[in-house]
């Protein structure tokens, strides 16, 4: 699996505690794994097993309680919040189950938003956002607001937003969770294509085996631990 010597993502003994009324809840209890550039990984596991918690840590939205996380060789736990923001902006794209688009903005403005935080000028980012929307096949819908789009279309806008700054990694937490099976297939086909043709590293969480089948490696969580980490033979897609 490890094509190159240095992994893109490397976590060691990661733990995450959540303070609750009845003391501390350990959502992650020592997770160690590494993911190389260009991999396509599916994370599975029962509800409450810690998948989202783990994804949020990988996506630099949250910090682990203990353990180390190196992204591209850099120690994420030492980074300032500004540095983390820059990572989220340029290196990482995040796709959520609930799309998380800004409802008052058009598809184009949603996709252009990360480019604004990247410091790109108005015209340049509109051009790049339009090109990205074209890539996900929504070029003609760029002036629709999310409410005027179907679920599948909204998720494609969200994917375009994740892709807008040309990140190397995309984290997707149940990206097809709100979509019907036909639309899910389209979205997954697009993800595979991104991984195959552009070498974008993909990590996605799913409950469904046929969605996980698009990936080439499957990691299973249970009670905050990794209980399975296997390669998937290319058969589907």
């Amino acid at each position: 699996m490890a094509e190159s010597g240095k992994p893109l993502i490397e976590v060691v003994d990661i733990e995450k505690d959540y303070p609750t009324g009845a003391g501390v809840f350990q959502a992650l209890r020592g997770v160690s794994l590494s993911i190389a550039a260009g991999e396509f990984v599916a994370i599975m596991g029962a509800s409450g097993s810690g998948k989202s918690t783990f994804m949020n840590l990988l996506g630099c939205l949250d910090r682990p309680t203990r353990g180390s996380y190196h992204l591209d060789g850099k120690d994420v736990s030492r980074m300032t919040s500004d540095q983390l923001a820059a990572l989220r902006n340029r290196e990482i794209g995040f796709v959520f189950q609930g799309f998380n688009l800004l409802p008052k903005l058009t598809a184009l403005d949603n996709v252009a938003l990360p480019l604004m935080y990247a410091g790109m000028g108005r015209e340049a980012r509109r051009r790049q956002a339009q090109a990205t929307l074209d890539r996900v096949g929504l070029g003609e819908r760029s002036h629709h607001t999310p409410l005027q789009l179907s679920g599948g279309q909204q998720q494609r806008v969200a994917i375009a937003r994740a892709l807008a700054t040309r990140p190397r990694i995309i984290f997707a937490d149940e990206p097809t969770g709100n979509l019907d099976s036909e639309t899910s297939r389209q979205v997954m086909g697009f993800f595979s294509q991104l991984n195959r043709e552009e070498g974008i590293t993909l990590v996605l969480v799913t409950h469904e085996a046929d969605i996980a089948a698009y990936a080439r490696r499957r990691i299973r969580f249970q009670d905050g631990r990794v209980v399975e980490d296997v390669a998937i033979e290319a058969a589907a897609a």
């Binding site: 996506g59 939205l61 919040s81 500004d82 923001a85 820059a86 989220r88 902006n89 340029r90 995040f94 998380n100 688009l101 800004l102 938003l113 990360p114 935080y117 990247a118 937003r161 994740a162 700054t165």
Partner: peptide, 16 residues
């Protein structure tokens, strides 16, 4: 609040 979370997730710094 949610909008702020989304903006931060896609790269808004605190000062932004």
């Amino acid at each position: 609040t949610r909008e702020i979370g989304i903006r931060m997730a896609i790269g808004a710094r605190r000062r932004d």
